[in-house]
């Protein structure tokens, strides 16, 4: 599977329909994720961030486009490559960065790290690093919303690798059977760690798998933020209207290694370079320039805002306190009800 053609642009409606400020905001959000993660990679080499660090650089359009389709009361369930989802959902860069550092002011109080970002206020239910493990939980969140007659949609992110897990199939089946308000959002970056989709799927058209469970599935260019947003908005509207779950497959690509340990022996530099031609940030910036909505000064201003925010986030993480060791066992259990 190669990069999708850049000619067809269903996102055009948003491009022409949204005010300039809103379009720049989407560009800013993608830049924010990109620069945040670039800083994370630096901090990793400096020994400030440890363990696994999975960067979503190249996939920012999916996070930003999808989150724009959600409301604050909706639920988000994510994966271990979730920095972009967390930031796009509105969790502060400082809280995410402090979590990377393992500090007590991190969004999971230093208990989770890069792979386990949680935030109750933003209804961000993790950060799950067992591939596919979040899907059943999303189904349950949707069940609760339905039974409590809440208008929430649950958006569940997962990668193409998860599609090979049994719980993917079980979860689509159960959500469709019970017509639950879930948007299953597959970020297909073509690789399950280092295994190309043609080497782990008998049917590489993931969106088509939805048909087996009787729910609509659709694929979208995951490098085009406005296309992702448009498709996500349509899917979320249908889900919210009670039409049952939807599967949306965003075809994207990870520009960086799987994790900081990955020597990338499984793909060629040419392939990566080819996909970088379709960098989601460049695509939107290019479209905005073409429409006379962006110039160098405006882009520099966005970059400056983003850099300032990340500087503050790193400072907050550096200054943040460590959880006292005597609190090691805290939160294994909740305080018991009397």
């Amino acid at each position: 599977m190669s990069a999708p053609e850049a000619t067809h642009r269903p996102g055009q409606a948003l491009l022409s329909g949204l005010p300039r400020e809103a379009l720049l905001e989407r560009l800013r959000e993608m830049l924010r994720i990109r620069r945040f993660e670039e800083r994370c990679a630096e901090l990793y080499t400096q020994g400030k961030i440890h363990g696994f660090l999975h960067l979503c650089i190249g996939e920012e359009a999916v996070a930003v486009g999808a989150m724009r389709a959600l409301r604050p009361e909706d639920n988000v369930v994510s994966t271990y490559r979730e920095h972009g989802h967390a930031l796009a959902r509105g969790i502060s860069a400082a809280a995410v960065m402090a979590e990377m550092f393992g500090k007590a002011n991190g969004c999971s109080r230093g208990r989770g790290g890069s792979m386990h970002l949680f935030d109750a206020q933003h209804r961000f239910f993790g950060g799950h690093a067992i591939v596919g493990g979040g899907l059943p939980i999303a189904v349950g969140l949707a069940l609760a919303a339905r039974m409590r007659q809440e208008a929430r949609v649950t958006c569940c992110f997962f990668g193409d690798g998860a599609v090979a897990e049994g719980v993917f199939h079980e979860s689509l089946n159960l959500a469709a059977l019970w017509r639950l308000p879930v948007l299953f959002l597959c970020e297909n970056n073509l690789y399950a760690m280092g295994t190309h989709i043609t080497r782990h799927q008998s049917q590489i058209d993931i969106a088509r798998k939805a048909a087996a469970y009787g729910l609509p599935g659709q694929a979208v260019d995951g490098m085009a933020v406005l296309e992702v947003e448009e498709a996500a908005r349509a899917a979320v509207a249908a889900v919210r209207a009670g039409e049952g779950p939807r599967l949306l497959e965003a075809r994207t690509y990870r520009f960086r290694a799987h994790s900081m340990y990955d020597p990338e022996l499984y793909r060629s530099r040419e392939e990566v370079a080819q996909w970088k031609q379709r960098d989601p940030i460049d695509l939107l910036a290019g479209a905005l320039r073409q429409a006379d909505l962006l110039d160098d000064a405006a882009l520099a201003q966005l970059e400056g805002e983003v850099a300032a925010e990340i500087d503050l986030a790193v400072a907050a993480a550096e200054a943040g306190p460590w959880e006292p060791v005597q609190d090691l066992l805290k939160d294994v259990h909740s305080p018991r009800f009397a």
Binding site: G140, L143, S171
Partner: peptide, 20 residues
């Protein structure tokens, strides 16, 4: 439920998180 132990237990987790 269907014979999907992982998923209906996970759905129980999600439902609990969602207030049930």
């Amino acid at each position: 439920t269907p014979l999907s132990e992982a998923t209906f237990v996970g759905a129980g987790i999600g439902a609990a998180l969602g207030g049930m």
